[in-house]
């Protein structure tokens, strides 16, 4: 059992009404985050995948969040600062290497 097993179960339950419809998108987005961050355990992941394969709204929310995450990460990654040429040399010098 992983760190978030119980949290997942409780939160997942709160996301859906008795009929199984997604009623709490905000909490569901927390679950999506856990899945996208690869922090959900196998059991939680199976429950999640089963749900998004049958619930259009859940699937839409997941796909949207996934695309948004990928797009933001891609653009942030291209914005890395160029490392100063002399930095590695200065570090070595400061520790007498």
């Amino acid at each position: 059992m992983s760190e978030f097993s119980d949290w997942f179960k409780d939160t997942f339950k709160n996301c859906y009404c008795d009929k199984g419809n997604l009623v709490n998108e905000e909490q569901f987005s927390e679950i999506v985050q856990l899945v996208l961050d690869n922090e959900a355990d196998e059991e939680s992941l199976a429950i999640f995948q089963q749900k998004i394969s049958t619930c259009v709204k859940s699937n839409f929310t997941y796909e949207k969040e996934k695309c948004m995450r990928e797009e933001i990460q891609k653009k942030l990654a291209t914005y890395d600062k160029e490392i100063p040429n002399d930095l590695a040399q200065m570090i070595r010098k400061s520790v007498n290497l």
Partner: peptide, 30 residues
């Protein structure tokens, strides 16, 4: 040393200043 690039970018994203990031990274390695 293989992590200098990541460290510098982390430092820059915390300080928003190239010189400050450089100082922070040097201090970290020291």
């Amino acid at each position: 040393m293989p992590h200098v690039d990541s460290m510098y970018n982390f430092g820059y994203r915390l300080t928003f200043d190239e010189d400050d990031a450089k100082d922070l990274v040097q201090d970290t390695y020291l």
